[in-house]
């Protein structure tokens, strides 16, 4: 188990290294002068020179890369061109709203989706199954910002139950914090409910065809016990995996949702940085998001080695 854990943790390094290479090369391999691209059309040649110097473009590619990686390992993501602040401090300022939104969304999604998917699988072919599956295709198809605006229009503009947009830090009151998160999280959770419900249904269905389910029935177990003790426990591995995959979708969703609901998180920071051609900030954010994705998938691998003894030994 320990060996497996160490191996799995070490496997993060090459992946992150490749992410770093891709992020690094994206700017360097774009045709044209990177400094000119960053500076934009209205820049003077003095601006471009300044940027070139800041990026260290005179050095060799390898040197630049090593320097950049070294700084990042020390927690230094460079300085923003646009805000003239360190990227690290900006990220730490804006990370909390994003974290709150993402966590709240995942919790809502799991609580709703897993029972729905299990029920749909158990009642395969029934109206319940068809409804859940139909809603899940719909959930995949309606983009999060359309859902967001529909929710705002109905519940904020017309019914006036919720504020239209905005965010309240947890320090200013827990009630208000949750209250203002309800609409954005609901909008964002739709696609996850669709994804997780569907995956739960598929894996439970698959498990229900297994021989050991027949064994459990042959023992005289009631259907409820067959489902909870034997089916769900085995279906948990693929369900947990899909939650890992969902993290990638979640990050995309966060960017859009923050933009729709004007939440001052990393998503809005990303958009501002892109539009401001603030390359150090963009690089830092991509590295951070990718790291989170890799890290969560690492945690998930560990969780499922706990769920499945075949991986553990």
């Amino acid at each position: 188990m320990l060996v497996y854990l160490i191996k799995r943790i070490l496997a993060v390094i090459p992946v992150m290294l490749i992410v770093a290479v891709i992020v690094f090369l994206m700017l360097r391999l774009t045709p044209g002068d990177p400094a000119a691209i960053i500076a934009g059309d209205a820049a003077t040649s003095a601006d471009i020179d300044l940027i070139r110097e800041k990026l260290g473009l005179e050095r060799s590619l390898i040197e630049q890369f090593v320097l950049w990686i070294g700084n990042m390992l020390g927690g230094d993501f460079g300085e923003s061109f646009y805000y003239k602040r360190s990227v690290t401090s900006m990220i730490s300022d804006r990370i909390w709203p994003t974290l709150a939104l993402a966590t709240f969304t995942i919790v809502i999604a799991c609580v709703v989706a897993v029972p729905l998917g299990t029920l749909a699988a158990y009642k395969q072919g029934s109206w319940l199954d068809r409804t859940v599956m139909g809603m899940s295709v719909l959930g995949f198809s309606v983009p999060v910002f359309v859902i967001g605006y529909v929710l705002i229009y109905v519940f904020a503009v017309k019914l006036d139950w919720f504020p239209v947009q905005g965010y309240q830090p947890i320090a200013d009151g827990f009630g208000g914090f949750i209250y203002r998160l309800i609409l954005p999280s609901s909008a964002l959770s739709v696609i996850f409910i669709a994804l997780i419900a569907r995956m739960t249904r598929t894996s439970v269905l698959e498990v229900l065809n297994e021989d050991y389910i027949r064994t459990a029935r042959a023992k005289g177990l009631s259907e409820t016990k067959v489902m909870t003790r034997h089916a769900l426990r085995n279906a948990a591995v693929p369900i947990v995996t899909v939650i890992g995959i969902a993290i990638a979708v979640l990050i995309s969703g966060v960017v859009v949702t923050e933009s729709v609901f004007v939440i001052p998180g990393l998503g809005t920071l990303t958009i501002d940085a892109i539009q401001g051609r603030d390359y150090p900030t963009v690089q830092g954010l991509i590295m951070l998001f990718s790291f989170v994705y890799v890290l969560i998938n690492l945690v998930i691998d560990v969780i499922y080695s706990l769920l499945d003894p075949r991986i553990r030994y």
Binding site: D211, Y212, T215, R229, D308
Partner: peptide
């Protein structure tokens, strides 16, 4: 009455 099956590999629940 009780039953045993062909595939001992798959007839037991792998996680219990």
């Amino acid at each position: 009455m009780a039953m045993i099956f062909q595939e001992p590999m798959t007839a037991l629940n792998p996680v219990i």
